[in-house]
Amino acid sequence: MTSVEICGVEFKNPVIAASGTFGFGREYEKFYSLSKLGGICTKGITLHERHGNSGTRIHETTGGLLNSIGLENPGVDVFIEEELPHMEKYDTVIIANVGGSTIEEYIMAVEKLNKTNIPMFELNISCPNVKQGGMAFGIKSDVAFKVVSEVKKVSKKPLVVKLSPNAENIVDMAYRCCEAGADGLSLVNTFSGMAIDIYGKKPVFENTIAGLSGPCIKPIALRMVYEVCSAVDIPVIGIGGIMDYKDAIEFIMSGAYGVQIGSGNFVKPDICLDIISGIEKFMKDEGIKSLKEIRGIIRRKS
């Protein structure tokens, strides 16, 4: 009943754990069977191992948190050898979230992941682009177009491009990623934000700017998903501050095929299960047989 097909891949339900909030699943398997999830996005994987940022990495804000993790990950080879075999034991869709600081790095990581059984890639274009002075790939549509089209050329799996809400124009960004060959889109990644330590008289984060997530971003994320779904025909996965089934249904009604749960996992480790059962109950109560019936329903003319 809750199953959805996204870019040709079958998900048993629309609930997917968001990248960077769920590790490679191991930590959460102690709380519930991960086979109950629609899917899991891995922590962002890069070609080489990364240690991430130094200094404070987490700062709580009203209704969410700022993070400056800096893509700490073991690198694609270690991921494939040590984490993937374990993840594949779960009966759920594994989505590899791929990051990079140059187009070449993205391509090399994707080429390695092509050889695995992972059914779907999520391209994180919110990473700083070293050749563009550190501005993220996902800010200017032309830069994003370039990386997406290059990666699409080599990718052997459906390619979902994860959009940054910091894009200059989110609808134009979505169009251009579509043109570049994206099979699907997911949004949003974290919003640029910052905090100041007023006693130390300095920014809380060494990089000054960090990424904001959690329920405080939900209304803006929902608006962006709505606008993007209205503009493109490829499947969209909605992300941003989803804390319960009602939030998830809102994203689906705005046009999303699936949803990702990020910061919510920190509040309650099995929050995804609550959201899945909440969606099931909502569908039953409302007499909904398939999510297709309500997907994008707010845009339909009566």
């Binding site: 909030t21 769920f22 590790g23 930590e27 991430g52 700062h59 993790i69 700490e72 920190f266």
Partner: peptide, 16 residues
């Protein structure tokens, strides 16, 4: 260290 998940998933508390 400041913690978000407390279980090893978010890497918010990593140290070298």
């Amino acid at each position: 260290r400041r913690m978000a998940c407390g279980i090893g998933a978010c890497l918010g508390c990593s140290i070298l």
